[in-house]
Amino acid sequence: MTPRNVLITLLVLLFAPLARAHELRPAYLVLRETTENHFDGSWKVPARDNRRLGLYVRLPDDCVVVRELSGAFVDDAYVERWSFTHPAGLVDATIRIDGLRETLTDVLVRIERLDGSTQVERLSPERPEVVVRGALTKLQVAGTYTDLGVRHILGGVDHLLFVLGLLFLVRGRAMLFKTITAFTVAHSIALAIATFGYVNVPPALVNTLVALSILFLGPELVREQRGETSLTIERPWLVAFAFGLLHGLGFASGLTQLGLPHSEVPLALLSFNVGVELGQLGFVAVLLALGVALGELQVRFGPRMRRLPAYVVGSLGAFWLCVGLSALI
């Protein structure tokens, strides 16, 4: 096997199955404060054929359950609802998930407060409980949202693929710097505008447009390979800026889903953006290091291999576009 063949295999392997969704579903616990110290809870456990996973919520002992609706199987989940009060509004209280330690499932816990702030936690078999926090300190907000930002970009294959496409399109360090900066500036602007509510684009539309931006890069990459030129190839930063605005809207919908704290919105937004940049820079750094390393090893790619990124980027863009369009319709 030549290095080229292996690389083709690796690259195809790298990108083909990423579109698949997570298969083992997590359980969801949502606690919503309705009036002062009064909460509505809903608990959704994965189930199949009228068998539910043996996961049970253990509320703090000083909770008083006001009303409890019996659980029911809904589609492929078992849902319980109840409402309760807690003297301290759950601040510093511990919520446990019984039975979680014995499973491989994760539990997403989301606590929504009257003031609009939310706390989102992911519990795992190794960490089956969560301590509900009061108002966040500034440092906690910054830390949490930076972390969320890194996770968001590293989990966003479409964004990373667009960056990958840009990297293959750009020639020279100065141009690379300009392009990445343009992309960063643009998505920061869009993220801020969308988060503050000046622009409101439905997430499904944003996803479709992001897919379109990836599809757009495919033919441009082919053109670049053929030695032809275009506006994109001469001024990649322009394209990076334009589509960066779109990607920023995508980040914004991610951030909205995660929930913003009621106070400290600008700080949370900034931290989230910093996290996104860190993740993105890390990705770019790994790719550039790999490029230098392959050069050092004198790996030479044939014309077919060199065209591969273009086709991978293009076809995945097209695929996601179809998925997005079907979701829109």
């Binding site: 083992l24 994965p46 199949r48 068998r51 996973l53 014995e102 499973t103 491989l104 499932t105």
Partner: peptide, 9 residues
């Protein structure tokens, strides 16, 4: 797999 998980638990 789900049953297996349940069995595990």
């Amino acid at each position: 797999a789900l049953l297996a998980t349940a069995a595990c638990s």
